[in-house]
Design a protein around this nucleic acid. Structure first.
Lengths: 346, 346
DNA sequence: TTGTATGCGTTATCAA
DNA sequence: TTGATAACGCATACAA
């Protein structure tokens, strides 16, 4: 304590400091830390002692520079405000952390431009791999990826023709599956509240799925029944208001997130419209709350945790053992609940 | 195109490559990139040309090693599953990104041990600053922080006696404020559903606040009315079940997150208990959904975005201009809604 | 305005 | 089993 120079704390201890204190060379310390089995019992002990004595912490950048890789992967998502992305990020972080990898985050707000910028910023920061959302990357982003040769996996959308390996659900099938359920229940006029489909391929494919189901019975999605909003509660509620205020009312509304579905339900409640009595409402994602609201929400569950696990697993296999990374289709799941219960007999 | 060697893409271009192609020295390129005003118009153009020609991307680790700092800050949170943390992280990331800083994430699951480990891992990765949650860090974490001299700001709890600068609300006051509202409404038996207070100082202080309000009128929190759960919906619902199944039923239940409050409401609904008719329920955080559910939820809003902004601002001021970072108290806000409406006349 | 030299902290390659 | 030495890619001080 008292024998410590007062203000020595400024400069963090380096490998050299430890070496000096332990009376060995820097390389030996380095070895002792990375492959302890290669160094003599006694020396190793002196070294660990010196390490803790000095509070030595390895310098990540120096390690990376010296060729060990940065031990970090970048994850670029639209926004953490959407539960599925938060779950994905958390899962990936937890799994990678076990292997000593960290994760760097980037948000796009759903803007493809920003997706490129964020991805590039992460690459510049030196991430060893990248996780992106969906399979609609801009060409220049694809080019960047191949140029720097960084491994990438995309999440949430499975597309066999994707340029990048992807882990996700078949969004078209998911949309269709939900629409078919609604049709089965007798709801034949289906509206959709979605995030902008231009920048969100998952939503676009879900719309296709719904349309496809409708086409089966000779119908189509009416243009005025396809409403885009920013995905957050207030605008989703407004969207529902617009739907209810239109000339013709839909019998069912599919929202591409549970959050939007809950907001839509709120608008119905405010207007005294029974759900599912007069209008059925369904969501997407199957967040933990969807069965806690009134009425419990029918939803297509997207298994974010499973997707995150698979991605982390693939990334690690590649990063550690140079394994090739391939795509994986994970199953969505239709959660049938009251919000799309049988249509009330009129 | 065709004149490019086939497999040159393996090794990413370096400053030296750019320099060679532009016919200047590496340092000139370095300057052209960091302080363009210091280099001749013409050379600068040749350099930018060479840069894009080669698809040159600066090597973050090398930059960091050469003394420019890592340009990254670490954020250690319990879990992204809780909306407030997701909002905090997103806000901080967005603000720091503008200044060229990235963020590295760590999750603790509410475990103080893991908080230490994650923080340490981030320090090792070279973050220039750290954001932690609450003001109950383990002593060894505090020691680590002073040892390595990394700037830290804590979020969500304001505590003037905190060892670290903090930006947050007065949780004790927030708890008291909510309890007082309930007492005003005539609910005098108040129960609490909370995350473990041992590892969560915010919750502990809120409990204190509620207790304090009760003490004002000569009452106290009954031990069996204080239930801890993991904070997620299912266990919160179970907690509510336990409360309802007890000998004596509370008249009001305060949940320390909106998610838990919604789950608690669901349990009441399932048991046919009117909210707020028979039991009032209140939440915390004021997430976007709290006014969309039925009944709309009374909640104490914790301004996560504002807190994130303030933190990012302080961090940047310190990182860029070496400004000292101080604490800030931000105001919570009582959102009065139906879930704690007047007690039904019996 | 530009170039040269040096160092950042670590790992890897080689000898000893 | 250990130590010396050379990278790693970039940013500076300093010289030109």
């Amino acid at each position: 304590m008292a024998d410590e120079p007062i203000s020595e704390k400024k400069r963090p201890a380096t490998l050299g400091d430890v070496a000096r204190l332990a009376g060995v060379s820097a390389s030996t310390v380095s070895r002792a830390l990375s492959r302890p089995d290669l160094v003599n019992e006694a020396t190793r002990e002196r070294i660990t002692w010196a390490v803790s004595r000095l509070g030595y912490i390895p310098h990540g950048a120096a390690r990376a520079l010296a060729g060990r890789g940065h031990r970090a992967v970048g994850v670029v998502i639209p926004s953490l405000r959407f539960g599925v992305f938060a779950e994905l990020v958390e899962t990936i972080q937890a799994r990678l952390d076990e292997a000593g990898f960290g994760i760097l985050l980037g948000h796009t707000g759903g803007d493809p431009e920003r997706e490129y910028e964020q991805a590039r910023a992460l690459v510049e920061r030196g991430v060893d791999a990248l996780v992106l959302i969906g399979n609609a990357q801009q060409p220049r982003l694809l080019r960047l990826i191949t140029d720097v040769g960084v491994p990438v996996v995309t999440a949430f959308d499975y597309d066999e023709s994707s340029a990048l390996p992807c882990v996700g659900v078949d969004n078209e099938a998911a949309g269709r599956c939900l629409a078919e359920h609604l049709l089965d229940q007798g709801y034949d006029e289906i509206a959709i509240i979605t995030q902008p489909t231009l920048s969100n391929d998952r939503s676009g494919k879900r719309v296709d799925g719904v349309a496809s189901a409708l086409r089966q019975i000779g119908r189509a999605v009416r243009p005025e029944f396809l409403i885009e909003c920013d995905g957050l509660a207030p605008s989703a509620r407004d969207a529902m208001g617009a739907l209810l205020g239109g000339e013709k009312r839909p019998r069912a509304v599919v929202c591409f997130s549970d959050l939007m579905a809950i907001a839509a339900t709120a608008e119905c409640r405010a207007q005294g419209i029974a759900v599912p009595g007069e209008i059925a409402i369904a969501g997407f994602s199957g967040i933990g709350l969807s069965d806690m609201v009134d009425p419990p929400l029918t939803s297509v569950r997207i298994p974010a945790v499973e997707i995150g696990d698979l991605i982390a697993e693939r990334l690690l296999a590649h990063l550690m053992d140079r394994a090739a990374v391939g795509s994986a289709l994970v199953a969505h799941e239709l959660l049938l609940r009251e919000s799309t219960g049988a249509l009330r007999e009129l």
